[in-house]
Design a protein around this nucleic acid. Sequence first.
RNA 1: GUCCUGUUAGCUCAGCUGGUAGAGCACGUCACUUUUAAUGAUGUGGCCGAUGGUUCGAAUCCAUCACAGGACACCA
Length: 504
Amino acid sequence: MIFENKYIQQRIEKANTLKDAGYNPYANDSKRNTTIEKYLNVNSDVAEMENKRDEKRHYIVSGRIKFLRIMGKASFVKIEDESGMLQVYITRDNLPEGFYNEIFKKNIEVGDIIEVGGFPFVTGKGELSLHVDSFKLLTKAISPLPEKFHGITDKEIRYRKRYLDLIMNAEVRKTFQIRSRVISLTRRFFEDKGFLEVETPMMHPIAGGANAKPFVTHHNALGVDRYLRIAPELYLKRLIVGGFEAVFEINRNFRNEGMDATHNPEFTSIEFYWAYKTYKDLIEITKEYFQYLFEHLNLPTLLPYGDLEVNFANFQEIPLIESLTTVGGVPADVTKDKERIIAYLNEKGITVKPGMNLGQLQGELFDEFVEKKLIDPTFITEYPVEISPLARRNDEHPEITERFELFIAGREIANAFSELNDPIDQLARFEGQMAAKESGDDEAHEMDSDFVEALSYGMAPTAGQGIGIDRLVMLLTNEHSIRDVLLFPAMKPVQEENTKEDEE
RNA sequence: GUCCUGUUAGCUCAGCUGGUAGAGCACGUCACUUUUAAUGAUGUGGCCGAUGGUUCGAAUCCAUCACAGGACACCA
């Protein structure tokens, strides 16, 4: 039985006592007429009054009891609603005969949700409070809350029982409010720019648009397997073919890979595609987007992140090859030669998989020596074509693509490029990926011939970008684990014990 | 996937080189009409993550398993 714990039994007893005395422990006729935040704002003038009270005003507020201090015939109770915390002052003589001693003191406790009415006053210690003349239990909590001072710190409980984390930790609520604001602002920013929000399938016949292992599910009626999408890219580009010139989608992607501080199997991204633009335009709109977020979230330009300080007034732009030398300290002549890169990496104690091509090796150098050093926002541009199967080649230098990734605080935040719209080249790139897949790269991109056919009807020159919303929120809220910006991060199931006896 | 660390009361944590399981908060009872983690008195509360092993004796030592956190690998 899940309620066999003695503390819970005790509280169930209290709920029953209340019920027997005619007080519904789960009443629903709330008469609340203000929130705590509004109450505190509206009555802030009471402190200036002569008696430090205004008995002509009357408010009804509701909230969960977080602190309960009973002192004989009077009590101080701190209640909390979504907007804030309020101290209420309850006395025996201001409530109906017997209520205070028999009902309130014996059956109401921390965790219960109550509703109180009364007038504003300021205590001797200067705290604006509510002088209670009516009291009502709205909801009895039969499980006790965690300890009031330390709260709940066990990460496993915090993630598995997020509701407890939210009850106990105001700053966690704050983080998720900011997350919501970021998504809302993102939506508004792109809508204001004339982008159309669209929804494309979450279940794909071919897992395309990125290099990643998909989750597989099965559609019974069609008798086919489907893949949870790893990226919406190829569908969004089909819409550009169809004639929409600016589209975006904010939604979940799913990747069947390892989990750690920056990876969850389902994560949220925004992808947007913009016809008649290039990746250079994307750099500009990205800067504008950050400015917009910072302005509306009231964030400082010098944003602290852990031990770092990120200067959002200092956007840099460096071609990838150049960054290997200027940031990574790799000798320039090493960076353009396969064998020399392998030798250099080996010299630094890094072994590389056999059969890597030049572009992949340059990517390896970047990951190893550059990425972590990019603290202020940096657009790394001109990626090798071998590691950019969906990006447009540079006209003068066909071995590089018109692409950038944005790095902030040593972490990738966005990936963007001028889209490859040459169907013949796209087909060849897919074939290259197929070859890589056959030689063992199980994350190589899948062939999507329907997408190639779509391109064959002509996709206007287009630039597209993806931004990882979770990582962005981590950055803006100074959180260092993706689990702290996901309400319900992925966790292994815990197997129930003692279930044998309870079930037949 | 691999390695390291952790798992003791509802919560936060002690528990040495093996010898009857501890504190604070919470909860019960009593006192208290301006407290701020209220206070004072008093009491209840544990399959020491699970299963095996070593031992006269295991929360403690060993093995396996489960879950978590961190690091590495791969990815975003």
